[in-house]
């Protein structure tokens, strides 16, 4: 029998829930209100509900000044393609972590042995530099040497870790402030990740990843990949190993095991993972603002256009924000059941 709650308590909890809900909703409400006012009224405080001339002109102005259709197309392309691309990488990764985990690190060397590895690498690199007759006072040569000497043992160590470590490492990449990676990523984008753009037989000088889908889609995929892999991993963990083993006994190849058994069974999890990824990619602003400005600029870029050095255009900014969030709000509204179910799948089972 369910415990009977006193009426006062129920009342208190209900009122509190409504207050918290309203506080959380308030910014969106305020944005909506501001979008329906003239630019000068948007600044006026206290708000005068009766004398404010409500208007829809801001939406028209935003549509005139910025090409909404272009921005929404770009957002859709980036969000959907990055999600699909992300799945292509995350499904195999999550499969191997869930069903073929590395329990013990595949290299379990002593500190001495690691030290020996570092010295050996250093020796080989030095020998190589000497054999190539490189000038060791050249900083580039020393830099390359140092890079190899640190990379080789580090790579050995990273790739020999067990699955739990790999999962944690993946999550830890989300803990790094994105601003810290901005300069390297910016350089990679302007140079296509290459030091030389003109290779003689192919010249990439005219082409770079800046402000293009070629750059934004993989970037957005990589940003959210740790989350996709983590979510898929937890869903896959729920599927009993024996079912996949049964399919192996039944003669299924790895491809069939994944596409005919694993994926159909994990559909609810995959759908909610995709939804979450879609929302994250849709709302992403930091990288979009820094790495796009015209051809591949998404909706978040459109919003920022109304906050310029000449001043903040609150009413238009609000209108643009509303236009940007409405589609994802609708998707979120209709899929909320799936989303909540997906996010709590592991917890309530």
């Amino acid at each position: 029998m369910a415990r009977k709650q006193p009426v006062v308590r129920t009342l208190f909890v209900t009122v509190l829930a409504w207050i918290v809900g309203l506080i959380m909703f308030f910014p969106i409400f305020w944005t909506a209100v501001a979008a329906l006012k003239t630019e000068s009224d948007a600044y006026t405080l206290p708000l005068n509900w009766l004398s404010t001339p409500w208007t829809l002109e801001n939406f028209g102005i935003v549509q005139d000044r910025s090409n909404y259709a272009l921005y929404i197309r770009n957002t859709v392309v980036i969000a959907f393609l990055s999600t699909i691309l992300g799945l292509c990488f995350a499904v195999p990764a999550a499969w191997s972590m869930a069903f073929a985990p590395v329990k013990e690190p595949s290299i379990s060397w002593s500190g001495k042995r690691w030290l020996a590895t570092i010295f050996l690498t250093a020796f080989v690199v030095g020998l190589g530099l000497y054999a190539l007759n490189w000038d060791l006072t050249n900083r580039a040569a020393l830099g390359l040497g140092a890079l190899i000497i640190t990379t080789v043992p580090l790579t050995l160590w990273v790739f020999s870790r067990n699955t739990t470590d790999a999962l944690l490492w993946m999550l830890s990449t989300k803990m790094m402030p994105p601003a810290g990676a901005l300069i390297p990523i910016y350089l990679i984008f302007t140079r296509n990740g290459l030091v030389f753009k003109d290779w003689g037989w192919i010249d990439l000088t005219e082409w770079n990843l800046m402000d293009s889908f070629w750059g934004m889609v993989p970037l957005m995929m990589l940003l959210n990949l740790p989350i996709i892999i983590w979510m898929l991993f937890t869903y896959f963990k729920e599927i009993p190993d024996e079912i996949l083993e049964a399919s192996r006994m039944d003669g299924a190849s790895l491809w069939n095991e994944i596409t005919k058994i694993l994926l159909p069974m994990a559909v609810p999890g995959i759908v909610s993972t995709c939804l979450l990824n879609l929302i994250l990619a849709w709302n992403e602003a930091f990288w979009s603002l820094n790495l796009t400005n015209r051809y591949a600029a998404p909706l978040s870029f459109m919003i920022s256009e109304y906050s310029s050095p000449e001043g903040q255009f609150w009413a238009k900014l609000s209108a643009a924000s509303l236009m940007a969030i409405v589609p994802i709000l609708i998707i979120g509204w209709f899929s909320q059941r799936q989303l909540v179910r997906g996010l709590t799948f592991g917890a309530v089972k």
């Binding site: 009993p240 024996e242 049964a246 192996r248 006994m249 190849s253």
Partner: peptide, 17 residues
């Protein structure tokens, strides 16, 4: 296992749900 031509019945039945 797929190429050993053996069939297995599991304790949990392991049917494809």
């Amino acid at each position: 296992p797929a190429e050993r031509r053996l069939a297995m019945v599991f304790q949990s039945y392991a049917l494809y749900p």
